[in-house]
Nucleic acid binder design. Structure first.
Length: 182
DNA sequence: CAATCGATTGCCT
DNA sequence: GGCAATCGATTGT
């Protein structure tokens, strides 16, 4: 299903993943979103990657198979999710920063306890999908969280910008944002 | 063993 | 637009 993941540089993979869908059946709530904002992190050559300094207890999941979920806690409060995109041992990953809701909006509203800004940010997206640290290392090809290849709808544009909130390698245009036609 | 610092969010002015 | 909240992995003494 996710044969496209292990192929090519993580930047290309991240851009190609725009329009892919992520389905969550966590806690019995079925939610589906389409990915619209992603960032590429290349383990070895990227000082901003959590895997840049090698394997640690936190980033162990990044060294797994392509299609593995890597989840970490940010600012002690939020969960952020990445998809491992490289072969075992390479630890390149794509950070999930934003998505468009396809179905299950009611479940998301309940989880987020608000009706706006539901999935526009890495922490918000995790909360919307019910992703927590317990899902770190999960296989996205099988289980309550599934990643499905797809295409952006006609007319959507892709913008390339610097990554958000990092201090190292901040000049690389490795953030990809898809926006609907106006 | 203590110190540091976020791949952020939401509420405040 | 500014800033506090919050915690554990990672790094330094």
């Amino acid at each position: 299903v996710i044969d496209e993941l292990g192929v090519g540089p993580v930047t290309d993979v991240a851009r190609a993943m725009l329009g892919w869908h992520l389905v969550s059946d966590v806690d019995g709530s079925s939610v589906e979103v389409m990915l619209t904002e992603l960032e590429a992190y290349a383990a070895d050559t990227d000082p901003a990657s959590h895997a840049f300094r090698g394997r640690t207890p936190r980033n162990a999941a990044m060294f797994g198979r392509p299609g593995t979920l890597y989840v970490y806690r940010s600012y002690g409060i939020h969960w952020c999710a990445n998809v491992v995109t490289s072969e075992v041992g390479s630890a390149s990953a794509v950070l999930l920063r934003g998505a468009a809701i396809v179905s299950g909006r009611d479940h998301i509203v309940a989880r987020r306890a608000r009706t706006d800004h539901l999935t526009d940010g890495p922490g918000k997206l995790c909360q919307a999908l019910g992703i927590t640290g317990a899902h770190g290392g999960a296989d996205l090809t099988d289980g309550p969280l599934r990643l499905l290849p797809g295409e952006l709808p006609a007319g959507w544009r892709v913008e390339t910008t610097p990554r958000i909130g990092i201090s190292k390698a901040a000049d690389r245009l490795w953030r990809y944002v898809a926006t609907p036609p106006r």
